[in-house]
Amino acid sequence: MRRVVVRRAEPARLGEGLRAYRLIAGMWIRSTTAYRTSFALTVVGNLLITVLDFVGILLMFSQVDTLGGWTLPEVALLYGLVATAFGLADLLLGSMDALGARIRDGSFDTLLVRPVPVLAQVGADRFALRRLGRITQGTLVLCWALLTVEVSWTAAKVLLVPVAVVSGAVIFGAVFVGGAAFQIVAQDAAEVQNAFTYGGSTLLQYPPTVFGTELVRGVTYMLPLAFVNWVPAAYVLGRPYPLGLPEWAAFAPPLVAAGFAVAAGLVWRAGLRAYRSTGS
């Protein structure tokens, strides 16, 4: 009898997680597209909701030429970056806020008896293609902003745009994971998560110059949302960085995202451990 406990290496575990995610997300796609009309309606509805988001900004700019010293194309760049990044995270992990409900109705236990990572199962839970609406709209606004904004483009600036979007998606993804871990402890308080996810993405749609220094400091050093778009956009637009961050900070998003993702992973593990020792 072998009694040697082999701890499988992390990369293998990641691959297994992604595979499980694909399998489960595929099941949800088939579940939701089973009702065609309903699916089409929700896609359109989702697109409308996100469009409305930007209409609010357009309404403001119908009354003013600049907001916090930023022009409409500049704010649109902020908006496009954050909406696309948040949209990606929302598509991939957005249903994690249903975790509290799963714990309450007991169905979370059924995920724990499967031979695949729980995080992958929870992340893929209720995967919904209708969330493509936000990404579509964000990308459109981003493209419009890139075409209209007055910038002397360099290779570094061009490269920074996709890097910022992907890093931003990882940062928001980490927020979703951390929020899910919090829900294990406080199942009924799912709405707190909205303050950081939807609240965070709303905050980042506006220039940092609009907000009080304390708030900007909070979303730079405590919850590094500023690296989703404020800092990269400031570099692209040649504007002063919030809080006088150093020049290289614009290229920090991948590092920040990686660090934040690791932190979220640890928080998730702690949350899962707490669940398995308390059962609630």
Binding site: V5, M27, R30, D105, G106, T110, V113, R114, P115, V116
Partner: peptide, 30 residues
């Protein structure tokens, strides 16, 4: 089966089957 369930949950999962009477694990709409 010689496995400590809490330490090696996923390895154990391959060797056990679980049916929760009041919670289906089947896909509702499929």
């Amino acid at each position: 089966a010689g496995i400590d369930p809490s330490r090696e949950r996923r390895r154990l999962a391959h060797r056990i089957g679980v049916v929760f009477g009041q919670r289906t694990t089947l896909w509702w709409d499929l």
